[in-house]
C-alpha cells in the first residue's frame, strides 16, 4: 500500500487545485455524475481522452461543457439548470431511467458537496435543519445511495473553524455509510470499514489534522 504524502512546503489547496485533484482520481472510462456547484468544476480538469462519460440526472449521458452564445438551447440543460452541450455518443432518457441507472449501481462515481461527513461515511448535504429552511432534496439522496463510489468535495472546516468531518453528523442525513473519499482544502481522506485514513495533506500534517479533529485519523497503511 502507498503511504501518506504530506505536502508541508505549501498552503491549503485552492478551489481549482481541489477540483483538479478529484479529476485526477476518477478512473479513465468511468461513468460519473458531478453534483451542482463546486463538483461541476471537476469536469474542467478531466484530461482529454480520459473517456469519462458525464451523467446528468435530468436525463443525459455524454454531457459536454457549458453552452455559450449560439450554442444555448433551452431544451439542453444540466441538473443545475445551466445550458450545456452534448458530446458525440450522447444519449437522452427519461427521469425514471436516469435514476434507475443511478440506483441500480451503474454509475461509477458521483462527486457531491457536503455540510458534514461522519467517520463512517454518513453524508449530510441537503438540509441545514434550521426551522425556517424550506427542505429541498433534489437528487442528492438518490446519488448518495446509488453511485458505486461517492466522493465529497468540501472545506474541512467551516468559516468559524468547526470541523465538517465529524464522529456523528448533526445535520439531517442524506445517506448512511455512502462516502468513500473526502477531498478537502487541507487533506484527502479515505473512509472504509476500518475508519478514516489520510492519503494526502496540504499545508499541514497528519498529526496537525489529528489535533484539530474529533475523528480519529491515521496515515495510509497504519492499522487501526
Amino acid at each position: 500500500m502507498s503511504s501518506t504524502v504530506e505536502h508541508l512546503d505549501r498552503g491549503p489547496l485552492g478551489r481549482d487545485e481541489l477540483a483538479a485533484l478529484v479529476a485526477r482520481d476518477i478512473p479513465p472510462g468511468s461513468f460519473v455524475n458531478l453534483g451542482i456547484g463546486q463538483p461541476t468544476t471537476v469536469a474542467d480538469h478531466l484530461p482529454a481522452g480520459s473517456g469519462v462519460v458525464l451523467h446528468t440526472e435530468n436525463g443525459m449521458l455524454g454531457m459536454g461543457p457549458a453552452a455559450h452564445g449560439d450554442e444555448i438551447d433551452p431544451d439542453l440543460i444540466n441538473a443545475g439548470k445551466i445550458p450545456v452541450t452534448e458530446l458525440p455518443g450522447a444519449s437522452y432518457f427519461h427521469h425514471a431511467d436516469s435514476f434507475a441507472m443511478m440506483r441500480g449501481g451503474h454509475l461509477d462515481v458521483c462527486v457531491l458537496g457536503a455540510f458534514q461527513v461522519s467517520e463512517r461515511g454518513d453524508l449530510a448535504n441537503w438540509h441545514t435543519g434550521a426551522p425556517d429552511a424550506i427542505p429541498a432534496v433534489g437528487g442528492a439522496m438518490d446519488l448518495a445511495t446509488g453511485a458505486k463510489q461517492v466522493f465529497v468535495m468540501m472545506t474541512l472546516f467551516t468559516k468559524d473553524g468547526t470541523p465538517k468531518l465529524v464522529p456523528e453528523c448533526t445535520y439531517p442525513l442524506t445517506g448512511l455509510a455512502c462516502v468513500s473519499r473526502v477531498y478537502t482544502d487541507l487533506a484527502v481522506f479515505h473512509i472504509g470499514p476500518g475508519g478514516v485514513t489520510v492519503a494526502e495533506t496540504y499545508g499541514t500534517s497528519v498529526a496537525g489534522l489529528a489535533s484539530r479533529l474529533e475523528v480519529a485519523v491515521r496515515p495510509l497503511g497504519q492499522q487501526p
Binding site: 440526472e57 427519461h94 427521469h95 425514471a96 436516469s98 435514476f99 434507475a100 443511478m102 440506483r103 425556517d132 424550506i134 427542505p135 429541498a136 432534496v137 433534489g138 437528487g139 442528492a140 439522496m141 438518490d142 446509488g146
Partner: peptide, 17 residues
C-alpha cells in the same frame, strides 16, 4: 412560509419511480 401550502419533499428518483 405563510402556511398556505402543504409540502411533501420526495427524493427525485423516488418521485419518478
Amino acid at each position: 412560509r405563510a402556511g398556505k401550502i402543504e409540502l411533501e419533499v420526495v427524493p427525485q428518483g423516488t418521485l419518478a419511480e
